[in-house]
Write a protein that binds this DNA or RNA. Structure first.
Lengths: 222, 222
DNA sequence: AGGTGTGAAGGTTTTCACAGCA
DNA sequence: TGCTGTGAAAACCTTCACACCT
C-alpha cells in the first residue's frame, strides 16, 4: 500500500456513511448464508448497488480487499463495525413518550447492534411512571441533566411535538449530549459542536404522494 | 410569464421534493403567526435555508412570487399542497403489527395532512384481532389483496422483519399499490413501475455513532 | 427600491475505465 | 486472469449574481 495523506473525517459525505450501514446489512445477510468472500461486483448485483461506489466508499477508510479475489466477509464486517463505532455500546435517551417515542423505546433496531435506550422522559404527569414494554419507566423530563450524566448518554432522541423540540434540543446540548436524532417536524437551530440529524417521517409519505400525483406529468423546466 | 418548455416530473430531484415538504412546514408556522407575505430571504433566515435554493425549487413548478414583494404565505402553501398531492386523501396500509407498525398506525403525522391509515395487517395469530388505539384492528395479511382494492389503498407501509419484506413488497405490488414506504432494513428488488422509498431508522443512529467515534480523526484521502 | 426567476459558475457525488497487484 | 483502488470524466446539485419586473 502506497503512502497516504490523511484527510479529516468531516470531509466524508453523510451519503457515504449511510451506505456503510447498508453494506453492513448486506454483509450480515451474506454471513448468515455462509458466504466467506465477496467481490464488489457480486455485492452490487445481489443488493442493487454500484460496485465502483462500494469500492470508493471503502477506500476512504483503508484497503480492505484483495485484488483478484474480493473482500473477506467477516473481516470487512468488522472493519465497518469499527468505522461506525458500533463496537462499544452507545447509550441513547428518548425525550417524548408519545406514540413514536414509546415505540422506539422498545424497537428492536434501537436496542441491538451497539445501541441501548437507557431512558424515556416526558413532562406530562399522566405519562410519567408508565411502564414501557422492555423494562423502562417514563421519567420526568426535569431530571434530564442528571440522567444524561449518570447514565452516560451519548445520543438524544427527540420525539416531542414540534413546538417543544427546540427547548428539548437546547436542554440536551446543555446537559452535554454530543449527538441528537430529531423526529419533530421543525427546523432546529443548531449548536455547531453537536451533530444533529433530522428525520421527518411524514416527508417520506409526502414524497410518495408527490409521485402518485405527478406520475407522468410535465412541469416547467429548470 | 414567458413561454415555457415543459420537462417530465421524473427529472426533478427527490432532494427538491423533500424540501418542498420542509417549506410547507415553515409556511404552516408563519401562517399560524399571522404572517401574510414572506420573501425567500426571510424564509431562509428564519429557518436556516438558502434563499436561491428556495426560489429554484419553486421555479420548477411555476412562478408563485411577486417581484419586489415576495410570496403570499397562504397562496404558496396551497400551491405546495397541490404539487405534493395532499389535497386529496391518501390511503395507506401498514403491513407488520410489531412495535413500529403499531406506533405508526396511530402516529398523528400519518393520520393528518392528507394521509389516513386504513388498515394494519400481520400474519401472527396472536396479533390478529388486537385493537390499535385510534380504532383499527389488526387483520390477517392473507386479506391484503382484497383490502387494497376495497379500501382503495395508494401507499403500502412495510414494517415486517427484514426476512419477510420482499414477499410483502411483491404482494403489495401484485395487489396494485403504486407506492411503498419500507422500514425493513433490507434492499428490496424494485418493480420499476412502483415508487419505493426506504427508511432505515437505525442508519441514522449509526451515522451519529460514526460522528461520535470519528470526531476530529483523520482518515486516508479519497 | 426590492425581490423574483434564472443563466452561469462552482462544488459535490457518481460513474467510468484502467493501471497495477494477487 | 480477475478484481481492487483510483484518477479522470460525467452527472448532478447548490450557490452566485444579475436582468427584469412590480
Amino acid at each position: 500500500m502506497a503512502f497516504k495523506r490523511y484527510i479529516p473525517v468531516e470531509s466524508i459525505s453523510e451519503l457515504t456513511i449511510n451506505r456503510l450501514s447498508v453494506y453492513l446489512r448486506c454483509l450480515d445477510q451474506l454471513e448468515q448464508e455462509g458466504v466467506l468472500t465477496v467481490s464488489s461486483q457480486e455485492l452490487a448485483d445481489r443488493f442493487h448497488l454500484n460496485s465502483a461506489q462500494i469500492r470508493k466508499d471503502l477506500a476512504y477508510f483503508g484497503e480492505f480487499g484483495i485484488r483478484g479475489v474480493g473482500y473477506n466477509v467477516a473481516q470487512l464486517k468488522e472493519h465497518l463495525v469499527n468505522i461506525l463505532g458500533l463496537n462499544e455500546e452507545r447509550h441513547a435517551l428518548i425525550v417524548g413518550a408519545g406514540n413514536l417515542g414509546t415505540a422506539l423505546a422498545h424497537y428492536s433496531g434501537f436496542n441491538t447492534g451497539g445501541f441501548r435506550i437507557v431512558g424515556i422522559l416526558d413532562n406530562d404527569p399522566k405519562r410519567i411512571g408508565a411502564q414501557i414494554p422492555g423494562g423502562l419507566v417514563v421519567e420526568d423530563v426535569k431530571f434530564l441533566p442528571d440522567i444524561v450524566k449518570e447514565r452516560n448518554v451519548h445520543i438524544g432522541i427527540i420525539t416531542v411535538p414540534a413546538a417543544a423540540a427546540q427547548k428539548v434540543f437546547d436542554a440536551l446540548v446543555e446537559a452535554g449530549v454530543q449527538a441528537v436524532l430529531n423526529f419533530a417536524p421543525t427546523q432546529l437551530k443548531g449548536h455547531p459542536e453537536v451533530k444533529l440529524k433530522n428525520v421527518d417521517l411524514k416527508i417520506n409519505l409526502e414524497l410518495l404522494s408527490f409521485f402518485l400525483t405527478q406520475a407522468g406529468k410535465l412541469v416547467p423546466p429548470a
